[in-house]
Amino acid sequence: MARGTTRRSLAELTESIGDKSPVDGKTAALQPRTPTTAPLSHLVANPRNPRRDIGDLSDLASIKDRQLQSALVVSREAYLKLWPEDLDAIEDALWVVINGCRRLEAARKYGRVELDIVVKNEVASDRVSLLTAAIDENIGRRDFDVIEEAEAVERLVAECGGRASEAAKRLNRTEGWVSQRRSLLKLAPELQEALRAGELAVRVARGLAQVPWEEQVARWHAEQENAGKKQEGVEAPKPGPKLRPASAPRIVKALSRFEPEPAILAEALRDYLDAGQLTQLVSALQATR
């Protein structure tokens, strides 16, 4: 030992050298740490994401300065083991975003250079697990297209060997819910678009899905027409205190005397109708001239 030096413990030596310590022949390169952040260039959105349209990202504009929730990712290798045919979609990315695709797109749009991530390759243990994780993030969101949701549920049922009960179990939903969502795919294209646009309620769509495909649109139009008539009936004026039906005989009597004495009819009408109805009557009479 050189003069003037002191003996140092193995722990102290390892600490002083840091991650490049050759102790036990191990290096940091052989023991990579799981990353908690990744540059956007290393990330790609899940090609099997049930959402085709990420929607309006303005609610995520603050991601430029802060990210409130990490994105869940799996490694490139873990993903391609399940879907090797997606190699072109993955390109050179190291991580595939399973939950957080909107955050990824918002980061790109608003100028964030990296994203906080959580690596969970166990999510990619099989296709069913990965699809379930992707669907789970979106189900129940108001901006999630209900037809896209139905398509995602259909894919999950297929991956479960066609067993709707297994898909329901994975999603923590009832088998009836799964069946109802799948039934929406039986709708005619026009009705699917109406459903997407919010013009057709899901509960009505489920009923129409049971009708033969070629009859669905006609049935929907008929139901709309009937609903419109009912609505008109609800909004039509109903007899009430202001109408004073007991004075109706005065109008009949006044009509019999109308030609010589129109003022009598006017007085009877003023007694029978309220102010709003009188205004409507005047407008109607003027329109007939």
Rank of each mutant, 00 (worst) to 15 (best):
T6Y: 01
R8E: 03
S9D: 00
A11Y: 00
E15F: 06
I17L: 13
G18L: 04
G18H: 06
G18A: 06
P22I: 04
A28T: 07
L30W: 05
R33V: 10
R33P: 00
T37W: 09
R48D: 04
R51F: 12
R52K: 14
R52N: 09
G55R: 11
D56C: 10
D56Q: 11
S58Y: 09
S58Q: 12
D59C: 07
L60A: 03
A61G: 04
R66C: 02
L72T: 09
R76E: 03
L80F: 03
L82E: 05
D92A: 08
A93Q: 06
V96H: 08
I98C: 12
N99G: 06
R102Y: 13
L104Y: 07
L104N: 08
R108Q: 13
G111S: 11
G111A: 10
L115D: 02
D116S: 11
I117C: 07
V118M: 13
V123Q: 05
V123G: 04
S125V: 11
S129M: 11
T132F: 01
A133W: 11
A134R: 10
I135L: 14
D136H: 09
I139M: 09
G140R: 07
D143Q: 05
D143M: 00
F144I: 08
F144G: 04
F144L: 05
D145I: 12
V146Q: 09
V146S: 09
I147C: 04
E148L: 11
A150P: 02
A152P: 11
R155S: 13
L156I: 01
A158L: 08
C160S: 06
C160R: 03
A164H: 05
E166F: 01
A167R: 09
K169D: 04
R170I: 00
L171D: 08
V178K: 10
R182Y: 05
S183I: 03
L185S: 07
K186G: 07
L187I: 12
A188I: 02
A188V: 03
L195P: 02
V204Q: 07
R206K: 09
G207K: 01
A209R: 05
E214I: 01
W220A: 11
H221I: 14
Q224K: 15
E225P: 00
K229C: 08
K230R: 15
E232A: 15
V234C: 03
A236N: 12
P237W: 07
K238M: 14
G240K: 08
R244D: 12
P245F: 02
P245M: 02
A246V: 12
A248L: 15
A248W: 15
P249V: 10
R250N: 13
R250Q: 13
V252P: 00
K253T: 12
K253E: 11
S256H: 14
S256A: 14
F258H: 10
P260A: 13
L265H: 05
L265P: 09
A268H: 10
D271I: 05
L281T: 02
V282Q: 14
V282G: 03
S283T: 13
A284S: 10
A287T: 11
R289L: 15
